[in-house]
Write a protein that binds this DNA or RNA. Sequence first.
DNA 1: TTTGAATAGTTGCATAGCTAACTATATGTC
DNA 2: GACATATAGTTAGCTATGCAACTATTCAAA
Lengths: 146, 146
Amino acid sequence: MSNNQFKRGELYSVINGMASTAVARRLQKNFRQAGLEITIEQWSVLYHLWKEDCLSQQELCNRTFRDKPSITRLIDNLEKQKLVRRMASKSDRRINLVCLTESARELQERTIDLANQTMNEALLGISREEIDTVKQVLQKVYDNLV
Amino acid sequence: MSNNQFKRGELYSVINGMASTAVARRLQKNFRQAGLEITIEQWSVLYHLWKEDCLSQQELCNRTFRDKPSITRLIDNLEKQKLVRRMASKSDRRINLVCLTESARELQERTIDLANQTMNEALLGISREEIDTVKQVLQKVYDNLV
DNA sequence: TTTGAATAGTTGCATAGCTAACTATATGTC
DNA sequence: GACATATAGTTAGCTATGCAACTATTCAAA
């Protein structure tokens, strides 16, 4: 095994472990401390619905990079907490449209600052150019494999 | 919510979802296709033991960015598959040293090519400088939060 | 119009993640 | 030496992930 190859292994390790779990854990911790009983995964689904409401479950799969069973159960849990509702699509009876409730919109207000504060901390001392490079590289990695 | 802040949200989304899950899924798929019944999480523990054998569980927590219960159960499962053994430390009876078995060393030979091939595919068209930038940025993100 | 393929979603099963609470051992201070 | 504190590891309970197999609906081609 060449040195170069092990260095690529390290990159894998870094991508997969350090930064993403650190950001997720910090945000989750901030939610908990604010008394918000929501998981980071549930928040990430709501995040996409706040940008565009009433998406199909399949569309949520695409946007959150999760598979269908994961989204099914995340929506189950969000429905239990009355944060979303499944609505039958008129045009295609196979489709569930996932729509926000009023509570979810209130939750958006309460999580904006926490999320921004967490990202500000996470990105401290990192330049716009560096961020752009990271986004481009991770997009390339994704496109290379999917 | 300013435009700039939502762009930071996108970065979070990218770090957390796309690239890391794409790499993990591809590697897992390659293992399965090669008839290797090992999860990507188990492999990541072995990866650190191949670099340095007989680490304590706590040290494996540090190196894999997992918490203690997660490592406990990963080691449980690796022990069931007879890939590692827990050995009591002579100097500190609180400590379990996790040591590789002969089967695990054979497994290393069989997974090297798969891992390298996956990383080659993942990193196609990405320069050394870009990789270095990504590593530095993700390290900074980690240091900012932990 | 029927049949077969594709798509949307659910369920069962196994693994993994995090928190909190727990046991056992080690260490430092009086 | 005794006691408080810290550290290593385990267990329980919940949530989440991924795959495979399943149902229901849509669509297109014979």
